[in-house]
Computed example of a mutant assay.
Amino acid sequence: MTSTKGASIPIQSVPNLRDIGGYSTRDGATVRFGRFYRSTHLSKISVDDAPRLADLGLATVFDLRTESERDAAPDSLPASVREVALDVLADKAYRSVPAQMQAVLSDPSIAQSMLGDNRALDYFLSSYRDFVTLPSAVASYRTLFTELAARATLPALVHCTTGKDRTGWAAASLLLLLGVDEDDVFHDYLLTNTQLLPAFESVFDRFAEAGGDPELLKQVVGVRLDYLKAALDHMRENFGSIEGYFADGLGIDAAGRESIRTHLLEG
């Protein structure tokens, strides 16, 4: 059992897989290890890594991808795992970045036309605000957190494609609800840059060889504090606090919020 907060789970075919446990709360409790994980999609698990994933003992996997993303790369899971598909971006008019991620990563002309001239930054700032108030996002995160209030849901894992944006908001809002300090929430969020970006080095190299700017891709594959701050600012503007977001934004009542804390905190 690991003892490092935000610890990476070393499964090579699932980069950015980590346990959100180990963070302390303002009340002196600690987020439990082995209860809730976050990762990239689970479609490329190798034969050697499949038993390691099974060893996590997952009961539930929450897949936050679009239908087209799921169809293109369906998860490969142990038979005992229940998968819950939650399309966070179903109501977003402009969804082409996640839907065309492979094309963006491989073709500099597509990447430039879609993301150049600060369009990447604008897209992600808009998306992170959408995570808070877009109807399909509200419905998806409501289902996720309602499920986490039920003990039988755990251990659970949440993922999208690269496990950083839709998944990043799920993890960040959960940690804030649990009472984790915002600095630690940002720490967990930024771990993507150290745990995921190295897995894309060959992609960056090929992109550069094709005439593209790898820094443009890093805006897409990595994370920036500005992204998460946009969601937090939008949350506070609309709901005042994390408690208000869960109560009024997602409709998770006080008993449900307390159940989540009971299941995921110790001490």
Score class of each variant (00 low, 15 high):
T2D: 02
A7Q: 10
A7Y: 01
Q12L: 07
P15C: 10
P15L: 01
G21L: 13
Y23M: 03
D27C: 05
D27F: 14
A29W: 02
T30K: 09
V31S: 02
F36C: 12
F36N: 02
Y37N: 04
S39E: 06
T40Q: 09
K44H: 13
I45F: 05
V47T: 11
A50N: 06
P51Y: 15
R52Q: 15
A54L: 04
L58P: 11
F62G: 12
D63S: 05
R82L: 01
A85Q: 08
L89R: 03
L89S: 06
Y94M: 04
Y94K: 04
R95G: 10
S96Y: 08
A99M: 09
L105F: 05
L105M: 15
S109N: 05
Q112N: 00
Q112E: 15
S113C: 00
D117N: 15
N118Q: 14
N118C: 00
A120E: 03
D122A: 15
D122V: 15
S126I: 06
S127V: 14
S127Y: 04
R129A: 15
L134E: 13
A137R: 05
L144R: 13
L144H: 11
A149H: 05
A150V: 14
C160M: 10
C160I: 02
G163M: 06
G163R: 01
T167Q: 11
L177A: 02
L178F: 07
E182M: 12
V185R: 11
D188K: 03
L191Y: 02
T192G: 08
T194Y: 02
Q195P: 09
L196S: 01
P198Y: 08
E201V: 05
S202Y: 06
V203M: 03
D205I: 06
E209Y: 01
A210P: 12
A210E: 11
G211W: 08
P214C: 02
K218W: 13
V221F: 01
R224K: 14
D226F: 07
Y227T: 07
A230D: 08
H234C: 12
R236N: 06
F239L: 12
S241W: 08
E243A: 09
E243M: 03
Y245K: 11
G251I: 12
D253K: 10
D253N: 14
D253Y: 03
A254C: 07
A255D: 15
R257M: 15
R257P: 13
R257T: 11
S259K: 11
H263D: 10
L264Y: 06
E266Y: 00
G267E: 12
